[in-house]
Amino acid sequence: MAKLTIDGVEVEVPDGTTILNAARQIGGDLVPPAMCYYSTLKDTGGKCRVCLVKVAAGSAKDPRPMPKLVASCRTPVADGMVVQNLTSPEVLEARKGVVEFLLLNHPLDCPICDQAGECDLQNLAYEHGAAKTRYEEDRRTFEKIDIGDKIKLHMTRCILCYRCTFVGDQLTDKRVHGVLGRGDKSEISTFIQQNVDNDFSGNMIDVCPVGALTDKTFRFKSRVWFTKPLDAHRNCTKCSGKVVLWTKGDDVLRVSARKDQFGEVKDYICNECRFEHKNMSDWTVEGPRHIDRHSVIAQNHYEKIDLQKLKKEVERQLEFQKGKALPQPDNALNS
């Protein structure tokens, strides 16, 4: 076990846990955002750089700070580590930079994007981004293509998190799509169009943090915040059968897997459940689904980080650094 502090809050986790997962155990605002890391897909992470944190002390044995900001999703904890996330201005500055970079070539077509309202990039930009762009040049664009009969790829919106390629590697028997080209010209694509075809390919839509991969059976049917999410299940031989139905009246407009508070799917669902059972009678409804993530679907309002709370936390940190005993964590920050 390793004991560490993240923004002054102490947490004890098994060795080998990443900083991000340790922070998730604490929960609340001090959890770094993650756009490419996905806990249920092996080897994801490290690419988007929004989860960068400062390691002010490497470990009890070697208390030197790490020279650069590190990707919290891939850096393992050590006993006695001191991590700063929101309490480090350097981290906030870097994160702001990364958000700006992610939005640079993003079309910002939220008004016509199916993902709007449940988009990780939208949330991230709201919390950490600037209101105005400094970018004056043309954005890179791609043609929309069908990568399978059920999935539309809108590459222009892609932030190259590589999550869908890991779905291809780890959930399906054969990956037939990948990343072509390099730099800002790289794109997710298939060698032959329309050839993503297997039982679990639909999960690519769920893991996509933006509106690059969309469900062709749901495209332009409704804004997500006009649909009502319901937990439901059915007996399925291929998957757990536990899903969320996005309904309008008695119509099932969309079926998706259940996401946890960090926007991650734990139980992947098969394409049959996702695409072929669009009748209420196919499902046993459990009740309304509570969406944990602050986004449009959650009561129509975003929550921004409370700067007052943050200031208190910074003060608490400084006290701690002066050598005083660690005061109790501010519960307000964890709520």
Binding site: R49, G183, D184, S186
Partner: peptide, 22 residues
């Protein structure tokens, strides 16, 4: 550098292109 960036991580993928354009 813009031409040679692999495009894996965001700051380099987007930033090198931006710098070139400016």
């Amino acid at each position: 550098y813009h031409h040679e960036s692999c495009g894996q991580c965001s700051p380099c993928r987007e930033g090198t292109g931006w710098m070139e354009k400016i």
